[in-house]
């Protein structure tokens, strides 16, 4: 599968080249997306959209101006959380009294793909993968299968999740965010459990044709379970099956949570010659954050230098393959291998 176009909304400046050089700070252990003005979306419609739907459609629509995809495939762990909690609060606060349905309809995770189908009058394949920390990876696999089934058709594939009080509080209670104030620029020095919350949307247009592609998805693998030996076995098997061992750049999902660091260090040790990059100080942690690593890889393949603060070790300076390793809470893991051609 080949990636041809991409767009991203996340907590850093994405519009201009070099926009990532200046790291924008987190506020209250949350990194919130920098949303554009969403020109072209009717204001009445925009007002009714929750943030996830707004970010998802706002990231996709610029890619769909002159292009009609034959499928809309979205990965989102939670979809419209903000609407979900609004409706939940209505139920409890009004003791199941007279409720308004708007938040309920917008709270379903398929609202992003549904809204995109509606706004672009697209009646093609439309699906939403919600497998928590592997939602985006499953969307990618779906799109990869479609690209093999119909190489000449274009597909929109995306990763979207938002921070809402709902998931922030639940994951805070679960111990997944730091209890002390944490600046994102020092995220990796904290040596404590938990990360900082993030959000974002990445949209890609893909097909089965290599001509003028930005990147090629060479392989993807996912697995479940907290056993570090499983991680090692899976990474080793993946490297053996799909690479010749030469991976100039490894991007990991390191997120400042010292409980997860051993997984990433395992991967780094298996690739001692690779430069290592990290991105969650830019995006924060969220279930579909691997989409950001993929988007950064596309920018790199297009010739843009990634900022100094991205690199943990060394610096990538060739056009060789890029491996992304991400784990969500140590329970869900994925490897994504990309190359320029």
């Amino acid at each position: 599968m080949y990636i041809h176009y991409h767009n991203c909304i996340f907590p850093q400046q994405t519009a201009l080249p070099g926009g990532l050089d200046t790291l924008l700070p987190a506020d209250g252990n949350q990194l919130k997306a920098i949303e554009p003005s969403y020109d072209g979306v009717p204001p009445g419609l925009l007002r009714r959209m929750g943030k996830a739907v707004r970010m998802g459609t706002g990231t996709a629509l610029p890619l769909l101006k002159d292009l009609r995809p034959d499928g809309i495939i979205i990965g989102t762990a939670n979809g419209g959380m903000e609407d979900c909690i609004r409706f939940l609060n209505q139920i409890i606060d009004y003791d199941e009294g007279m409720l308004t349905p708007g938040n309920f309809v917008q709270s379903t995770p398929n609202a992003i793909a549904g809204q995109l189908g509606l706004m672009t009058r697209n009646q093609c394949y439309n699906i939403t993968h919600v497998h928590r920390g592997l939602s985006f990876e499953q969307a990618l696999l779906d799109a990869a299968m479609l690209s093999m089934e119909h190489p000449h058709r274009n597909y929109l594939v995306g990763a979207v999740d938002e921070i809402a009080d709902y998931n922030y509080n639940i994951d805070l209670l679960g111990g997944w965010y730091k209890k002390h104030p944490q600046q994102n620029k020092d995220l990796y020095e904290a040596n404590s459990p938990g990360s900082i919350a993030g959000e974002g949307a990445v949209m890609l247009v893909v097909n089965g044709q290599p001509e003028e592609a930005v990147a090629r998805l060479r392989a993807i693998r996912s697995w479940h379970g907290t056993n570090p030996d499983d991680a090692r076995t899976n990474i080793e098997a993946f490297l053996q099956q799909y690479t010749d061992g030469n991976i100039p750049l490894l991007i990991t999902g390191e997120n400042g949570d010292n409980r997860l660091l051993p997984y990433y260090e395992t991967c780094e040790k298996l690739l001692p010659g690779s430069a290592v990059g990290r991105f969650k100080h830019m995006s924060g942690e969220y279930p579909t954050a691997a989409g950001i690593a993929l988007w950064l890889t596309c920018r790199l393949f297009e010739g843009e230098a990634l900022p100094h603060h991205f690199y943990k070790k060394g610096k990538e300076n060739t056009a060789g393959p890029v491996l992304i390793y991400n784990t969500y809470k140590g329970e869900q893991h994925s490897l994504i291998l990309l190359s320029k051609k």
Binding site: P109, T128, H129, V130, L134
Partner: peptide, 9 residues
């Protein structure tokens, strides 16, 4: 093997 969850209402 592969695990996935789908929500299309």
């Amino acid at each position: 093997g592969i695990q996935n969850t789908i929500n299309t209402a």
